[in-house]
Amino acid sequence: MAVTSPAAEAKDVVAITDVKYTSEDPENTTVSVTDSKGAEVKGTLDKDAKVWKPEKALDYGTKYTVTVNGTAAAGKGGSTSSTFTTMAKPSKTIRVTSFLGDAQKVGVAMPLIIKFSKSIPEKYRAEVERRMPVTATPAQEGTWGWISPTEVHYRPKVYWKANSKVFYKVQLAGVPLGGDYYGKSDLTVDLNIGRSFVMTVSNKTKQMTVKQDGKVIKTIPVSLGKSTTPSSSGTMVVMEKLKHTVFDTTDTDPKNGYKTPIDFAQRITWSGQFIHAAPWSEGKQGRTNVSHGCVNVSEAMGAWLFDRTMMGDPITVSGTEEKLKDGNGWTDWSLSYDQFKKKSYL
């Protein structure tokens, strides 16, 4: 038996290195890795592949000892050891952040959102995905998809199951990410999915149907975007909630812009489409479209919705003149699951 990687007395070894070894009797072989003080490092041993993987990145600039032990059965016993030293702490690191945090509760369409402080080169993205496991309880199929070189989302095949739990971790500390850059740290997030609250809007009927846990609980008249400023057709997600705000478009459109106080606003696109109360269009709601692209509801229904929605709740609009543009909001659900999977590098 022998340690084959890292090589004996190797220097500048990456901190997230795997230890590989040979053995004629792998089932009865054990592997331990200890630091310079003799403390054992936590890791997992794959006896079939003959690989030991550290639970997290090793300390930088530290000498480690690998010991491989076999049993005495069939004359295949014995012990061998090898040492290696990890690289110095890198000066170039990429920070990773999660949009969501521990114990947060979100709607059934909420994507998991991870951002990087620097672009991840394409050749490293598959390895990044491998180091971002997601565990849902109960189990649910899903995939990561790259939104840009600095942002990756995860969505399940269908909406998250109501009241489920989701745990994910990003294990990039010490991982090479190209151009002398390395992952700066690891993170974990443990969050909760809320009840199912799904809004569906038909331009044909000018009505919003609201379902909670699969049952229709309300039908609400709406006014969508007029033909010159149509609402987007597609599945969007509540990204932000503002009980009172001011819509001000005078900076971008000095001639035709407007500045209007708005109640119960819920953002669904980056381009400025919201679900919101619009008392000035109450006579039109359910009959004709007069908005600048938003989903107008009455003041009373705006308050009713606002009290019940949460970030991550989906709204699907159909039958308008314009299709939702990919990337105009959290548009992960505007693609089929097979289409979204194509954004993964695995």
Score class of each variant (00 low, 15 high):
residue 159 Y to E: 05
residue 159 Y to N: 08
residue 159 Y to M: 12
residue 159 Y to D: 09
residue 161 K to C: 06
residue 162 A to Q: 12
residue 162 A to F: 13
residue 162 A to P: 12
residue 162 A to L: 07
residue 163 N to R: 15
residue 163 N to E: 08
residue 163 N to Y: 14
residue 163 N to I: 05
residue 163 N to L: 08
residue 164 S to F: 15
residue 164 S to N: 07
residue 164 S to R: 10
residue 164 S to Q: 11
residue 164 S to W: 13
residue 165 K to F: 11
residue 165 K to M: 13
residue 165 K to S: 09
residue 166 V to F: 08
residue 167 F to H: 13
residue 167 F to G: 07
residue 167 F to P: 02
residue 167 F to Y: 15
residue 167 F to C: 04
residue 168 Y to C: 06
residue 168 Y to G: 09
residue 168 Y to V: 08
residue 168 Y to D: 10
residue 168 Y to L: 04
residue 168 Y to K: 15
residue 168 Y to I: 11
residue 168 Y to W: 14
residue 169 K to Q: 13
residue 169 K to L: 12
residue 169 K to S: 12
residue 170 V to D: 08
residue 170 V to K: 09
residue 170 V to E: 05
residue 170 V to H: 03
residue 170 V to N: 06
residue 171 Q to S: 11
residue 171 Q to E: 04
residue 171 Q to T: 06
residue 171 Q to P: 03
residue 172 L to Q: 01
residue 172 L to P: 01
residue 172 L to R: 01
residue 173 A to V: 02
residue 174 G to S: 00
residue 174 G to A: 01
residue 174 G to M: 00
residue 174 G to D: 00
residue 174 G to F: 00
residue 175 V to M: 10
residue 175 V to R: 14
residue 175 V to H: 11
residue 175 V to L: 12
residue 176 P to D: 10
residue 176 P to G: 04
residue 176 P to R: 04
residue 177 L to E: 00
residue 177 L to Y: 06
residue 177 L to S: 01
residue 178 G to W: 00
residue 178 G to I: 01
residue 179 G to D: 06
residue 179 G to P: 11
residue 179 G to T: 06
residue 179 G to W: 09
residue 180 D to E: 15
residue 180 D to T: 07
residue 180 D to H: 13
residue 180 D to R: 09
residue 180 D to S: 14
residue 180 D to C: 05
residue 181 Y to L: 14
residue 181 Y to K: 13
residue 181 Y to M: 13
residue 181 Y to I: 05
residue 181 Y to G: 14
residue 182 Y to L: 02
residue 182 Y to C: 01
residue 182 Y to G: 01
residue 182 Y to N: 00
residue 183 G to V: 01
residue 183 G to Y: 03
residue 185 S to F: 10
residue 185 S to L: 05
residue 185 S to P: 05
residue 185 S to C: 04
residue 186 D to F: 11
residue 186 D to Q: 10
residue 186 D to G: 09
residue 187 L to Y: 15
residue 187 L to Q: 12
residue 188 T to M: 11
residue 188 T to V: 06
residue 188 T to W: 07
residue 188 T to L: 03
residue 188 T to G: 11
residue 188 T to P: 02
residue 189 V to W: 08
residue 189 V to A: 03
residue 189 V to D: 04
residue 189 V to E: 06
residue 189 V to P: 14
residue 190 D to I: 07
residue 190 D to G: 07
residue 190 D to R: 10
residue 190 D to W: 12
residue 191 L to G: 02
residue 191 L to P: 02
residue 192 N to H: 08
residue 192 N to A: 12
residue 192 N to W: 10
residue 192 N to E: 07
residue 192 N to F: 08
residue 193 I to D: 05
residue 193 I to K: 09
residue 193 I to S: 02
residue 193 I to E: 05
residue 193 I to P: 01
residue 194 G to K: 04
residue 194 G to R: 05
residue 194 G to L: 05
residue 195 R to I: 12
residue 195 R to P: 07
residue 196 S to W: 09
residue 196 S to I: 03
residue 196 S to R: 08
residue 197 F to L: 13
residue 197 F to H: 03
residue 198 V to F: 06
residue 198 V to E: 05
residue 198 V to T: 10
residue 198 V to C: 02
residue 199 M to R: 02
